[in-house]
Amino acid sequence: MNELTNTMDEYKGKSLSWSVADGVIELALDRAPANEIGLAMLEDLERFITMLPALELKASALIIYSKQKAGFSAGADLRELYAQAQKMEMASAVKGVRDFLNRIHAVMNRLDTSPLTTIAAVHGVCFGGGFELALACDLIVADKMARFCFPELRLGIIPCFGGIPRLKRDIGNAVVRDLLLTGRSINATKALAVGLASQVAAEGEALRVARSTAAQTTKFDRTTAAAAKEFIKPLPAEELRREIELFCELFTRPAVMEALLKFVESTDAMPYLP
């Protein structure tokens, strides 16, 4: 399918695709190698968000999953971030970062508050910004090989796509601090135990389980389901705004560029891993 055959109900972009069937929207992330979230992914996500009000009229649930073998998403595209930052003075770089963050936050916040029941079907790596995308969803269905991590402190930065406020909203502060301050990754069993994931699926079965869950939601009155969601899932708007400010402050430190350079120069297939 090319751009010309894209319709509201079916779309294929550079880094993702979506389709609607039987009251369920499926948004498939598909950018090699691991769905890094850079400008291309942001633009496709913005396109999806633009279409979402119309899509919401014909669906009860939204499933976000990945077609990439490596996992759900490895997070922000740090190579792109470093390359962009190198092209300009720090003041301009911070302005560019702030613009990107405002745009990605708008996407995440719209997903977070969608009246649909939203489900992240997660397999493999679910790191940084990818983890933050999953956290914007109402439910996380985790493949037993899924791995969740906030590695940002290793780079001298903090999660910046809304991760900390959303994690704080959902689970205990002790676990939030553990994940954030140690940068360690946790598996699906642990994610389920701490209340991060709502279901664990066998290897390769997360999407099937997510589809089964989504089908269940289509049985309910949408107005009631949306009201229930709004009641129990408030947007931590003030903390989300503060997160952007804190990230921009930290981003100006020389240690961040040094860490990003080290990351960019790494020949490891997955240098953001511990």
């Binding site: 493999g124 791995r147 598996n187 490891d268 240098p271 891993l273």
Partner: peptide, 12 residues
């Protein structure tokens, strides 16, 4: 194996 596969091994 690379570090991604090592992470898979860790999970297993």
């Amino acid at each position: 194996i690379d570090s991604l596969q090592a992470l898979e091994l860790l999970t297993r």
